[in-house]
Amino acid sequence: MDEVEKIRSYKDRIRIFLILYFFSEDFLEPNKPLLKKVFRSEMRIQKIDFLVRNPDYLAFELLNIVRKDELKKEEIKHVVKNIFQNNEPVLRRLEMERFFFGAYEDIDDVISFLKSIGFIDFSSKKSSDLKTVDKLYFITDLAVNKMGINISSLPALTWYVDRCTLIKKYFGDMSATQLKVAQYQIDEYRDTSYKSYIGSIKGLVVEEFNNIYNEQL
């Protein structure tokens, strides 16, 4: 594995793990005491991952919220400004390919890794034709403890923690399908052809921001 691939695989591991950790709900099942949290469906991972990896799309969706909820206008302005001031759409961007149902990337390797070190467990419900319909991911006791001890001493990973918290605040309640529908509203996303990279929409965000706040981003 060369350096670039190695770095990439590490980044995938932490990102997917943190998404599972932050977007899961508490889980209490007396006969499975080691499982602490539960996360539903792979598609939801993919949709949230897309927002983590594309700060420009995140910014755009935040601006969409302003259109519906005038009360959030000022706080979102601050958030979007920060994203652009830190040049995140360039520095934090990790391109993603478009698949049949929108942005998608194979995460089997990451899930296997997390499973092998005992951070997560998963179960699949199958429908009558044996297709997986609902995949549940569980966060273990071990992972929850490790998070508590470890993450605060790693400054380079703070960004991920903050980003997950931010996305959760605004989009945490949305299902995979709702997230997908929202992402499909964006031309660049929808018009990207199968197996091509979804392009940046920095320019569009700047334009929208100017429309809403009458201010240059």
Binding site: I7, Y10, K11, I14, L157
Partner: peptide, 11 residues
Amino acid sequence: DLEEYLEIGRF
């Protein structure tokens, strides 16, 4: 990337 790599390794 590199800073993250080192810290993810530690994590």
